[in-house]
Each structure stands twice: as C-alpha cells, then as structure tokens.
Write a protein that binds this DNA or RNA. Structure first.
Lengths: 206, 206
DNA sequence: ATCACAATTGGACCTTGGTCCCATTCGTCT
DNA sequence: AGACGAATGGGACCAAGGTCCAATTGTGAT
C-alpha cells in the first residue's frame, strides 16, 4: 500500500533529514528531503506529496508558515511537525491549523511512522474527495446558465410545472433543459442528481 | 445572544473558579462551577452546558479524562482547557481530542472569552445538527422494515419496477410502500427524501 | 379468539416525467 | 453572410409515479 507514496521532509538539520529519510524509506515510502522551506517551494512539486514532515523552527519561514504558504498555492497536504524547541502555545497553534501530529525531538521512530501513516491516509481520503468534487464541478461547468437554474429548482423538489411558472417559460421547455441537465451531469436518476448537486452545495440549504 | 448560555467551570482551585466565573458572568453567561470532576459528574447536568472550561490537572480524573467520561455518557460539549503545568504532548493530546483551546495560567481574559465564544458557537452548531438528525431518525423509526427497504432502493435511484423485481413483489405494492415512506418521513418530494436518507447514511455509498 | 397492524395486490384513473421530430428566434463568432 | 449554440416551444406518445377504493393473508398482542 505504501508503495509509491511520497513523503516530503523539510528540515535544516541534515542529520535529522537523513535519519527521517532512512526511517521512512525502510517503511516503503518514496522520500524527498529539502534543507529549507524555500527549497521545497522552488521545487514546486509539493502537491505530489502525500505527507509533509516539517521542522517547526527553520530559517526564513517556519513550519507553520510553510504550510500556510503551500495552502495559498493550493497544496493542502497533511503535515507532521517535529521540533526541538517547542512550547505549548505553538503546539496548540499547529494542531489548530490541522497538523496531524506534533512531536518533540528526540522522537520515537514508531510514533513518527504512525503519524506519517495517519497523515498519508488522511491525504488519500481528501484526495479522493477533491477529485470526485472536481469531476462533478467540471460537469457542472458544461451547463448553460438556464440549465443550472433548472437544476437548482429540480433538486429543491419542485415539479416541472412549478419550475415553468417560476421561470415564466413553458413546462415543455423545462423538460428539455432538465433532460440536458441529466445528460451533462451524467446522472442516471433524480436521486443521483440530488446527491451531485448536494456536493456542489446546492439544495441542502433551508 | 449569550443571554442564557450556560458555561460549566471545573477547577479545584477556588480562586481560579471565582475569577473565571466572574469574568464569564460579566460577558453574559450563566456559569456553574464545580470543584472537582466528581462534582460535575454527580450533578449530571453537564449536557445543559454550551461550553466547558476545565482545569487539566485535578484530583481524580484529569480534564481530558473528564471529557472522555462525559462523552461516554453522551455529552459532547466543546471544552476549553486551562492549566498551570502543561507540557507539549499533553496539549497536543488535548487538541487531538477536540479541545477548542488550551491555555496556560496565567491566561489573558480576552483570550479565554474568545475561546469560550468559539466553543459556544461550536456547541450551538452541533446541537442544531444533532437535533435535526434526531428528528429524522425518529421519523425513520416509524418505518416498517419493508418500507425501510423500499426507501433504500428508492434513494438509490431505482425505478418502482426494478425495486419490485428485486424484492420479488408487485410494482403496485412498491408504490404503496413508497407512498407511506414519503408520508412517514414527511418528505415533500423525492429530492427531500434523498437528502433525509443521506443524513441517515443511506444511499451515499458507492 | 379477536383485534390491530403489516404486507400484499387488483383495478381504475390521473398526473408527471421523458423523448422524438421539428421549428423559430437571438446573439456570437468566423 | 453563414454557421452555431442557446433558449424556446408545439405535437405526439409512452413510461413512470401517485392515489382511491377494496380485499386477502399472516402475525403478534390482549
């Protein structure tokens, strides 16, 4: 399972990088290590990582800021922090920001591995989720504005007749739009369309 | 808004209890304070709280264990921890367990208030969510097993005809069950039924 | 044994949804 | 000008959903 899973390590301490790299490779991960936040940002491949292992205290950006910067760039990979000089407020802040684990050096190998496994699993789930959503969104993009309008009303449970009244058009026309919505959204049934729309945030209000 | 919102404070240090109580009352909360985990557990009113403010280190159960015990009893109120003797692993553990905030003594009044407000808001949201779900579940409880079966297939997008085939009964019978499902679930449309079922964890697999 | 409820179905009928073919009217893009 | 997508619908039809009245059968509870 952990076959080609990539873990990116960022730490300015070469000894730590080597130790962590070796440990993770033994567990079957593909590891890339960077000596600084700048290095990984320049590489620009962070979104291929399934997990980040970050030193908190680094020159330039600290680990938290690096995660924030990656988020800005659309990379939302789960992170595990390791640090030698931690205090409570910092650890709390990191956990609030969504860190999977926050470890103090020296850390127990087993605990790091467990944290990485959890982060990788979280990444896998989120990735599947995002891909599914992106897929649905790309289909929705193909809808004309009128079709979108009709879809919204359909998934709110209105009858074609009511939709027609609300839009000031003939019921016949609603049927045409509705048919195209089903086709473009690749929905095999109204139930499926409702779920698709739900993931787009449509219809679950009120 | 913070009118009759209840905050429960548990701390074995009377001075802290008094200070926190006074601070929160000034902000408009109804405050109940307890000198020990046992005291609040015996009172058995914890689920009326919108927020917990807990000392981490207390005789008997510590704050984390108290939260866990309350969870076991079905009380899932958001908690804010305050403590004088914190270490990083403990704070991380608390945050992982879902703590809203983890503060070290002496704490800044403004920060505590902010944390309490956030916890109260989280409680409000979760409460609304739970109530909505409980409502739906109570309706679903009124379904006969056959009706439940039919509902599952309906929200999966199957036609009455297909449902009939799968259950080995007449399409006519499916219609009857289906009608009763709509009635008992108080669904005004198929779209609504799909959403109700979705909240019950039905149909959104695959 | 009797009652209430669940499950089942028939028949009749009406409403909705969905699809085909075809046609018109606007804008936009080439 | 001509092509094209989008929006709009008429007519015809068929499939699917929904409802009313009525009836049978089985099962558990009183």
């Amino acid at each position: 399972m952990t076959d080609e899973t990539a873990v990116f390590v960022v730490d300015d301490d070469e000894l730590v990088r080597r130790a962590v790299t070796r440990l993770l490779k033994l567990d079957g991960y593909r590891v890339e290590s960077y000596p600084s936040p700048q290095a990984i940002l320049e590489a620009g491949t962070a979104d291929s990582a399934a997990c980040l292992v970050l030193d908190l205290r680094m020159p330039g950006l600290n680990g938290l800021e690096l995660v924030e910067e990656l988020r800005q760039r659309g990379v939302s990979t789960p992170a595990v922090f390791i640090t030698g000089h931690a205090d409570v407020p910092t650890s709390v802040q990191a956990m609030k920001a969504g860190a999977v684990e926050f470890l103090e050096k020296p850390f127990d190998d087993k605990i790091l591995l467990k944290a990485v496994r959890e982060a990788v699993e979280r990444d896998r789930t989120e990735r599947i989720d995002r891909e599914g959503l992106a897929d649905i969104e790309s289909r929705a993009k193909a809808l004309t504005s009128r079709e979108r309008e009709v879809m919204n009303l359909v998934v709110q449970g209105l009858l074609n007749k009511q939709i027609a009244g609300q839009l000031g058009i003939a019921e016949k026309t609603v049927k045409v739009h509705r048919g195209r919505v089903m086709e473009k959204m690749e929905a095999g049934s109204l139930a499926e369309l409702v779920r698709l729309a739900g993931r787009l945030g449509i219809g679950d209000s009120g």
